[in-house]
Design a binder for these strands. Sequence first.
DNA 1: GATATGTTTAACGAACATGTCAAACGACTT
DNA 2: AAGTCGTTTGACATGTTCGTTAAACATATC
Lengths: 204, 204
Amino acid sequence: MVLQTETEEKIIASAERLFYQKGKAGTSMQDIADDAGINRTLLNYYFRSKDQLFEAVFRKAMGTFVPNVAAMMSSDISFNDYLPALVEKIIDTMLEHPQIPIFVLQELSSNPERMPQIIKEMGIDPDKVMEKMGKGIASSKIDFDPRQVILSMISLCIFPFAAKPVALDILYGGDEEAYISAMKDRKVLIPMIINQIVSQNQSG
Amino acid sequence: MVLQTETEEKIIASAERLFYQKGKAGTSMQDIADDAGINRTLLNYYFRSKDQLFEAVFRKAMGTFVPNVAAMMSSDISFNDYLPALVEKIIDTMLEHPQIPIFVLQELSSNPERMPQIIKEMGIDPDKVMEKMGKGIASSKIDFDPRQVILSMISLCIFPFAAKPVALDILYGGDEEAYISAMKDRKVLIPMIINQIVSQNQSG
DNA sequence: GATATGTTTAACGAACATGTCAAACGACTT
DNA sequence: AAGTCGTTTGACATGTTCGTTAAACATATC
């Protein structure tokens, strides 16, 4: 896995592009081969089957998210202090791979039974996540269920990318630059919003 | 379109379920026919082609969203006052059709070029949306780009449903009831958050 | 009871998709 | 020059999918 042949890289690159855009069933092995400019049989040579090729792409996509969450988990910094850095990291990831959210969510929506194993493999311990969140947020003397705060933060970070075509057209008149710029603005906007929630009962 | 034969209804119902879950390419006409308990040829008899059947389902899915937005637009109530009702409406819609967001976003992500025409057909005038939003929010003496507020509200309402499998497993340990209950809680939570943003500069 | 209309069915044909295999190729070793 | 190894290719077998067509069926009308 560490050392990849040039052909293998081309395959992965093309498979990503096409799977991201058209989905697993919507993409044929021939499509990928054509996009990569190689013979279709090579896909089977390097990845055995379409399922395994898809799996490789899916895992790589998941892998772009996990480091962010993992970093948050392993950090000893309180949630509040860590928040801005986390948001920035997530949004930067999204700016680089805007198509990943839908791709991953679509796959998980089709096969929700995969979740438990994925959680396990990714080394995420739900209990620890909750513990961490509970501690970080409890220190802010807040009523809100920490899960709602987490969910809201993630929603604010990711959804605008998942809904890019809609947002771009309706809110930004198709001006891609304006859209991107707005997404970057959210790096500071979202922590403000979340802080506002968390500190609500303090100032009130 | 007003009057539908029983068979036609069965087809649409099955097509919705399967398209929502497995996507267009991932669902075969045979799958739909089997699910509906009818002969496959009937799908062609009533909808001519897979494309047209999918189109019918997609439009119906889009149609569940638009009334919410349209209502907001046509209403003369200010954005702030209308907010709670709108959020409740959106979340109720999501609770009823939790799979629609991914379905629609996946399709629009695959074919973003559809957006302009969809906007047109749905009778949404981006300029008027902005005007309305600008007015409603401007009255709150706020610095934020109204588009950021809109986008944030929608994100908070919809994303938790798009990410249901993930949220359900990681945050709610697979307890569906707890998840649903949390979603309902957001009906009051989200307006609080948005109000907090909008009124931030007033109280500050 | 024959006929017409709309619905349902089985069978067919063409196109496409996936995986395998044996042969060709290229580079490097002996 | 022969041989070996990994890579690449074309051809094949199998299965699936989609749309059409012609026939069967039902039901209502004359």
